[in-house]
Design a protein around this nucleic acid. Structure first.
Lengths: 216, 216, 216, 216
DNA sequence: CATGAATGAGTCTTCATTCAT
DNA sequence: AATGAATGAAGACTCATTCAT
């Protein structure tokens, strides 16, 4: 982390055994960081969990941060994949519900790592970039959705789609944090319901035909 | 070896000089943590910034964590004080606007420390407690406001006040983070407007007499 | 901050090199404590004496006290082993002479460490325990010997074996201190002779057949 | 303790107030060392116990060791004074009993400090000198007594008075340690009786007229 | 490739002593 | 004289990284 490096730069593993060790380290790294947090995330702990020797760590990773970045990247990919709402779902409100449900679920698995890593984000530009990418994915998706609804006359046209997406996305994100980390005992399904109704009301979502704004 | 602590337990300074040094250390501590983050927050950095010798740190603080707690406590107090909305403000929507404006402003000054410290919250119960207290203040205040509006027939009675406060409070909190840390160039006043409109619409806030409260 | 220990808990070395370093540290530790006393016994001094880097200390020992305990344990074992009087020696007086001679000799090698460590004994329960064990070994052995002589009608039956062993054992112990530490120039062999005669007379040891046991 | 000194050398207090403070510090020092041991013996603790400010310490004492020396000197004087056996006591055995009783008693009050200080004796020549002086007092007195008894035909003439005094004096000294520090629950009066009988038997003390060696 | 020992700068904390008031 | 704040060298321990085998 800032020392000049004289070590051979790790190369992509060429043998099957190498691949296995490499992957085992990533899995172990994630497990360690989830179970013991940032402070417990040491090469020693990771290699021990992976069942390999200490030195092997630097055969595959340039540094602790290198492994961390890979873990975060994997967690981010996973989270985004799991958050995708199928195109087949047409009803706007149903899409909101589904997006929220999936976000809270995805978050339960991957966001632990992401949150834990946020501290590091103040120091490492690569990590900061990764986190921004994830955020951008959600904000962009939210903004697109809102814009489409506005164009369809289903949402308040005075709202700036991006600002609105940042705000409402933040709402869901923060609730995920509360659920997953502060362990306030919340009923997830009830929360999904509230989040969705709040989101819909906030943008003035109107059912195409009906007078009722929000389905009871 | 289990040696008992023999060092003077820090006491409140009795002389003016002592008071000055003590305060300088708290100021320096906050500055250091804001500029260099948790990782840069060392007794050495703090004393150097304050222009005193290393040992002086322990004249006033039991430990690094002791200072940290005081800084966080001060930041929390400051933040909450600055967030209070005057009782003289009666109009519900105006209160929402004011609360949001103040929150974003307070956050700009104090939340930097709080955010930076959140990582520590995974480890230290005192800090975690402090952060939870702050959150509880905002959640409680939000929930009370919503409940009152519901009782006055001005807000959607189907919403659980606490869940709603957590969600909408989270929205504002997260936006504050985005503004203050990720430095996405956002127009704060415009954001206050959006947050307030979203919050109001979300809970279905209705002007007592008029048909629609939110300006089109 | 209550960070959990993340450093590798020292394990027994698995390689020859590791064994060598480990042993070198123990040897160096004993040397340091003998030459510079408790106050000079620092990880830095020990590693420098052993010719390894500072950090290596903690590869093998959990703490300074950990090494200290091992040194003391080794010294204690060594001392007790060297103090054993062969069972083949039958004559009671000859056994007393032999025990004293061996004690003074053993003490010359090991007691330096033990004495130096006594100060620590006021603080650390493990060390205190070790020292008590050693004392108990000698007191127990002495008391047994006296009891047997009493039963054989060879020693004053009015003496409490344990009290007597504590007293006479203390005599030999203290003389060892004087010889080894205060460096009063004493003729060891002459001292052994005196100690043995005093011990024998004190318990009223009588040769089975003869009138007086102690040579005039 | 080895640093060049630039402080004004403390002078003997001239005012009554100064005298009082000076004495209070010595008393407090002894109390601290007895209650909290060597490790707790800090200028801070001493001044606090004496109820004066930290800096006052160096008004009266050059250093921590300076105070320590004065404490030890006082304890030594006290111990020796209390150990004196009145000249009016004529009977040799009674004198032995009295000397042992007084030694154990004196030791209970003063030896705590002395023992605790022995560690320092390895470092500081002044202290070592003080301890040697005390020892010499007892050894000399013991040797004189033995010599007189030998000259009176009451003790084994083959014993070297000095070696014997060292040995038997060591016996009593060590027993005092056991009683006072290791807190083996021993009946002091019974121990005095044993020590005296052992001492008398050891030197072959004979009652002037009688055949019995040791009075029952 | 794997192993595990070695490295040493860095961290927090202590405390005898000095100094300004 | 007294006060109590200031000093800073030194101590124990950590841990990311390197290296010999």
């Amino acid at each position: 982390m800032g020392r000049a490096r004289t070590n051979p730069a790790p190369t992509a593993p060429t043998t099957a055994r190498g691949r296995r060790t490499h992957d085992a380290l990533i899995v172990a790294g994630r497990q360690v960081i989830e179970e013991h947090g940032w402070a417990g995330f040491t090469p020693e702990a990771v290699t021990q969990t992976a069942g390999v020797s200490y030195g092997t760590f630097y055969t595959y990773f340039e540094s602790k941060d290198d492994l961390l970045r890979r873990i975060v990247q994997a967690a981010a990919d996973e989270m985004i994949t799991e958050s995708l709402v199928p195109d087949t779902l047409d009803d706007p409100y149903a899409r909101i519900v589904e997006a929220n449900r999936r976000y809270l679920a995805a978050t339960g698995k991957a966001a632990k790592v992401l949150r834990m890593v946020e501290h590091g984000a103040y120091l490492d530009d690569n990590l900061r970039g990764l986190l921004l990418e994830i955020r951008e994915f959600y904000v962009g998706r939210g903004a697109d959705g809102i814009r489409r609804l506005q164009e369809a006359g289903l949402a308040d046209p005075d709202l700036d789609p991006r600002l609105t997406a940042i705000a409402l996305g933040g709402m869901v994100e923060q609730v995920a944090v509360v659920i997953n980390e502060l362990r306030e005992p919340l009923d997830t399904e009830k929360m999904v319901d509230h989040l969705s109704r709040l989101w819909a009301s906030a943008i003035g979502l109107r059912a195409p035909g009906a007078g009722r704004r929000i389905p009871a």
